[in-house]
């Protein structure tokens, strides 16, 4: 099936700095794609390019097989974006929600459409008369989302939609965007730092780091600095006196990841080349993608996720609060730069 959005060889620079380098990315129609990564990883840049609000320096963006460019009329009206800090026009809530409909010369009953938009985000119809400065942060975010939802977009891009709102608003936003997918088949792309939320809601997760897409996930992010240890290995010290070992990084302050599948619970003895970590179990949860139990542990202040298969006895030994021994191979650490 043809993807809704296809990026080919997309590179984007801010002056001399490479902000995004995506050789290929497909986003299926009606899917929910999550974008994860630290600050400055390129999530917002990618969203702006997908929203046709910024033209990539090089590469091609295809929407349903047709190449499109930033500010292109027809395509840009099918894709809409909710920025991290949405701007409300200095007008009433009604005029803010009706703005996009008016741009599209959509006649019909604007009042009913605005009312429907407000209902979708859990706001009372009386909000329509309020002015932009009479709203709380969460209400403003929901009004901005309502202004996008009334357009019934083919694709809705959300940049940290729940970052600056309370739990209730976050829940209402989640319900509203899921409603859009169910009712209109809207394709959703969500950038967020909230990994567990992304994990729950998304069909696919894309990990970005320094503008590049990672093949691995960023669950076990190992920050530098690293110092030389024995026999060609390098180590990063943990707060409880333990050390994490890895192969030689490109720089002492390089960051790495240890794939969750490369960690295993020690039962018996260490195998040749393996290293040991003493950790405390924080939680056990069912991994949505693996359909199997995973462990969340704390290892001297370093959070780690273990997603290698666990049998009944191992699960029994991994109650939250218990200490467990994990094994890993230093060569499995993947350097991010």
């Amino acid at each position: 099936m043809e993807p809704f959005i296809l990026l080919q060889g997309v590179k984007h620079f801010y002056k001399e700095r490479l902000a995004l380098d995506i050789p290929e990315l497909q986003i299926e129609k009606g899917s929910i794609t999550g974008l994860a990564g630290p600050n400055g990883s390129g999530k917002s840049t990618l969203l702006r390019i997908l929203a046709l609000a910024e033209q990539c320096t090089s590469g091609t963006l295809l929407v349903e097989g047709t190449p499109v460019w930033a500010y292109a009329g027809k395509a840009s009206r099918r894709i809409t974006m909710l920025p991290q800090e949405p701007y409300l026009l200095r007008r009433t809530v009604y005029d803010n929600i009706a703005y996009g409909l008016r741009l599209r010369n959509k006649g019909g009953d604007l009042k009913a459409a605005v009312g429907e938009g407000l209902a979708l985000v859990g706001l009372d119809p009386s909000f329509a008369a309020r002015r932009w400065h009479e709203l709380s942060g969460g209400e403003a975010q929901r009004v901005a989302l309502a202004a996008r939802l009334v357009l019934r977009p083919s694709c809705l891009l959300l940049d940290e939609p729940t970052a600056s709102v309370d739990v209730k608003s976050g829940l209402l936003i989640q319900q509203a965007i899921l409603h859009a997918r169910e009712q209109w088949g809207t394709t959703l792309v969500i950038a967020s730092h909230n990994r567990s939320w992304l994990h729950d809601i998304c069909d696919h997760l894309i990990f970005l780091y320094n503008g590049r897409r990672l093949e691995c996930c960023l669950d076990n992010f190992l920050p530098g600095p690293w110092s030389p240890a024995e026999t060609g290995l390098w180590q990063a010290s943990l707060s409880d006196g333990q050390a994490l070992y890895a192969g030689k990084p490109s720089r002492p302050d390089s960051n790495g990841v240890l794939p969750p599948s490369s960690l295993r619970l020690m039962n018996g003895t260490l195998r040749e080349g393996e290293r040991l970590l003493r950790c405390t179990v924080i939680a056990i949860y069912i991994d949505k993608y693996l359909h199997a139990p995973s462990l969340q542990v704390n290892c001297g202040g370093q959070p780690l996720v273990v997603s290698s298969p666990l049998d009944e006895d191992e699960l029994d030994a991994c109650r939250p609060g218990r200490e467990v021994n994990l094994c890993y191979r230093p060569e499995n650490v993947i350097w991010l730069d």
Binding site: Y71, G73, T80, Y87, L89, R148, L151, L157
Partner: peptide, 23 residues
């Protein structure tokens, strides 16, 4: 954030011009 908001709502350059002036 005004420009990004207007572009993301589908405004043309002329509509961005007029709305920005109104703002």
């Amino acid at each position: 954030h005004l420009r990004l908001t207007l572009v993301s709502l589908g405004a043309s350059p002329r509509q961005i011009f007029l709305t920005s002036l109104w703002e």
